[in-house]
Write a protein that binds this DNA or RNA. Structure first.
Lengths: 221, 221
DNA sequence: TTTGAGGAAAATATCGATTTTACGGCCGGT
DNA sequence: ACCGGCCGTAAAATCGATATTTTCCTCAAA
């Protein structure tokens, strides 16, 4: 239920969960849009139960809201919400990365290098899996923190953030920045076990995309 | 779905959610125990759908685990898990409390004082609502941080922590400590807008109960 | 005695249908 | 013409039942 890449799912609930989640994150479903059970049921060719269960799960990911007894809707967006996500993300990932580096092992280091390579390769090839691999790289950096709950928090915030990026329709502009250099810098500092440098670069990496996106959603005070 | 106190629920899903959640938190359902749909269905006198939906929601609260195609079970416990919760709680609540005090208003201050009074009153009367009011006091402290997601994280961690307290069967021992003084100290510092002092007392408050409980679950390195 | 395969029993996941609830327009009253 | 309450429609929530999967027990063979 955590890895978006492992797609040999079997249960209808999982299929519905990932499908709806993807639709919301990529903007295929508009923020605030009413999510009718029957509509999704037909669209995904499944029963009502898996849909309801999937929506319940997405509720806890802050991607879906449940209203009284009137069903579900895609979570709305706002500038303050975006700022909150950005700020939380910086704080939590900074913490997680420091813990990760403090507990660094050879295995972790190799996993990070590997994740980076795969992401970079997909980037150069224009592979559509880049988004998934990008997330996996960032998560690999934090994995050694040894705090599953913290990791899940970061994962959720990552998805919320990427949703705003999709909604701004800026996947291209975003990539055209020199994110590759930024990723390389983070990787280098992490491998060198330089927690301060790595964390600083990571946070700066986020704030840069953040300030870019902030224009689209209004900057609250 | 957030406030445990507002009990005029209508939907079967909500009833099931709070009922099962309460059973897990208070130890009425053992950690790791298999949660059979049919058993719960009879126990709560409802259909299978609300049960499944409630369990799905609890999954995201880390109180229930879903396994492959083999149903659900109550989340297991461990010393490392407890330590993780404690550490995360200290970090996140420290942050939230500082933000809350930084954005303090008269309304917030009054709400905090009120929440403390209610909790204290219930404590002196041996009122069973103490646990709920205790949580409400702590959440009131953080409410002004203006970060709903952070608040929810703290709320989840609070529930996970209180579960360990119940499992240690130490509700009494816990209360017999001078928690009243600790709460009063936090309240005083918060009202005085002394973020450093308030945060320090809050964290120390948690660590004290934490080190007490650590003995029950083993201290991982 | 242990191991492995087969089958029966139980539990889960899913579906289709029923019941309940909320919303929007209509009608009558003021 | 406007306001308030009633009814029809649509959607959600829930239930009962089915099909599929898993588990456990038994029995036979090594």
């Amino acid at each position: 239920m955590t890895e978006p890449t492992e797609r040999p799912e079997t249960s209808a609930t999982q299929r519905a969960y990932f499908a709806i989640r993807n639709m919301i994150v990529t903007g295929n479903l508009d923020p605030g849009e009413k999510l009718k059970i029957d509509g999704l049921r037909q669209r995904l060719e499944t029963g009502a139960s898996p849909i309801r269960e999937a929506l319940s799960l997405l509720t806890s990911d802050y991607l879906v809201e449940r209203i009284d007894q009137r069903g579900f809707r895609a979570a709305p967006i706002s500038g303050t919400n975006f700022q909150e996500i950005l700020a939380l993300r910086c704080t939590l990932e900074d913490m997680a990365l420091r813990q990760s580096i403090a507990a660094a092992t050879t295995e972790w280091e190799e996993a990070v290098v590997l994740a980076h390579h795969r992401m970079q390769r997909a980037y150069e090839n224009g592979d559509s899996r880049f988004e998934d691999l990008h997330k996996q790289f960032h998560m690999a950096l934090l994995a050694q923190a040894g705090s599953p709950i913290l990791l899940k928090f970061c994962s959720q915030l990552y998805d919320l953030n990427i949703r705003y990026r999709y909604l701004a329709g800026s996947s291209q502009d975003y990539k055209s920045r020199d994110v590759s250099d930024e990723h390389a810098g983070i990787l280098k500092a992490a491998v060198a076990r330089d927690a301060d440098l790595a964390a600083a670069q990571l946070v700066s990496h986020y704030r840069r995309t953040g300030s870019y996106l902030a224009g689209f959603f209004g900057e609250p005070r």
